[in-house]
């Protein structure tokens, strides 16, 4: 067996009791379960939208425009007569997809940067972390707006904007985790037997830092959905007629004054419940993974 294959990390030691405790605690956390429920519901809606949506999300019908909730259109119709329920169901695909890609970009760039900065330290580490500090100096939404405005409106721009805004927080979190972990005996032992740096980082440090990063990724999903829908609302994200929750609210904005509340209310509830889902699950995961928080609750 080569040195690189020797696994000294505590993660590789299977601990069934620990896993059981994790699931038991998660099942006991009612708020986390509510969060998980919302996430499952919206993910299911996103997956099966073409099969369950009663109408096409882009099909216009001027005769039935601006109708309130009826038997034919459960959540009413918009100013082009499009079915709001169908648009919300299809909108779930875009919102969750934007959130996933956005958080994915933050994760894939932020985590390695934080790990490298902490593991190698010195000038490289200082340079990386100062760059992250500069990015953190920008208010999140403003930076996302500036990036999306530079790239031009659209789904890709929104995803990139959401992704870049999240990089520094992932990097800082991973930096903190790596700084602590690199002093642990199992890392020193791996170094002593000649395991390569990349192997130590990816096979030993990364799995042990995964808990807090997973919590942050879950919480970031809610934030990503919020930022992406805010960009669409401002005209910088997904463009009409694509069904997206923020863009739907923006389109229905002028009708709120004349009392047509359904154009704005239902997409807003969709955004709020999806964010609530990720926030509750993230909080629940944090409570379960951090015993100090568990006891002080």
């Amino acid at each position: 067996m080569s040195a690189a294959e020797v696994s000294l990390s505590p993660v590789s030691v299977k601990n069934k009791k620990k896993k059981k405790t994790f699931f038991t605690l998660m099942l006991r956390n009612r708020l986390a379960l509510i969060g998980l429920f919302f996430i499952i519901i919206w993910t299911l809606f996103a997956l099966v939208a073409p099969f369950i949506a009663p109408h096409s999300p882009t099909e216009t019908d001027t005769i039935s425009k601006l109708q309130g909730p009826t038997a034919a259109h459960w959540l009413g119709t918009d100013n082009y007569g499009r079915d709001i329920l169908s648009r919300i169901l299809y909108g779930a695909r875009i919102s969750i997809w934007t959130g996933l890609i956005g958080v994915g970009i933050s994760f894939l760039i932020g985590v390695p940067l934080g790990a490298i900065a902490a593991f190698y330290g010195g000038k490289i580490g200082d340079f990386i972390m100062r760059c992250m500090d500069v990015l953190l100096a920008f208010p999140s939404l403003i930076l996302a707006m500036a990036i999306a405005a530079s790239l031009g409106p659209g789904l890709t721009s929104a995803m990139i904007a959401v992704g870049i805004v999240g990089i520094p927080e992932f990097a800082r979190l991973m930096y903190g985790q790596t700084i602590t972990l690199k002093e642990k005996e199992f890392v020193e032992a791996s170094k002593a037997i000649g395991v390569k740096d990349t192997t130590i980082l990816f096979r030993h440090i990364f799995p042990n830092a995964l808990g807090p990063i997973l919590v942050h990724a879950t919480l970031s999903m809610g934030f990503a959905i919020l930022v992406a829908s805010s960009l669409s609302f401002l005209g910088l994200g997904i463009q009409p007629p694509t069904p997206e929750w923020g863009a739907m609210i923006s389109e229905g904005r002028e009708y709120i004054i004349t009392g047509q509340w359904w154009l704005v209310t239902f997409p807003g509830l969709a955004i709020a419940t999806s964010i609530l889902g990720f926030n509750l699950l993230g909080d629940g995961l944090r409570d379960v993974l951090d015993p100090r928080l568990r006891s002080s609750k």
């Binding site: 809610g222 919020l226 829908s229 805010s230 609302f233 923020g246 609210i249 923006s250 904005r253 709120i256 004054i257 004349t258 009392g259 509340w261 704005v264 209310t265 997409p267 807003g268 955004i271 709020a272 419940t273 964010i275 609530l276 926030n279 509750l280």
Partner: peptide
């Protein structure tokens, strides 16, 4: 606290306009 942190600002603003201006007419037009 939980709900306040999840509600999008642009939606909340529009709902406030709907309730306090369009429906109850107790505050001026936005």
């Amino acid at each position: 606290s939980l709900i306040g942190a999840c509600v999008p600002l642009f939606w909340l603003g529009l709902m406030l306009i709907f309730l306090f201006y369009s429906k109850w007419d107790i505050l001026p037009a936005p």
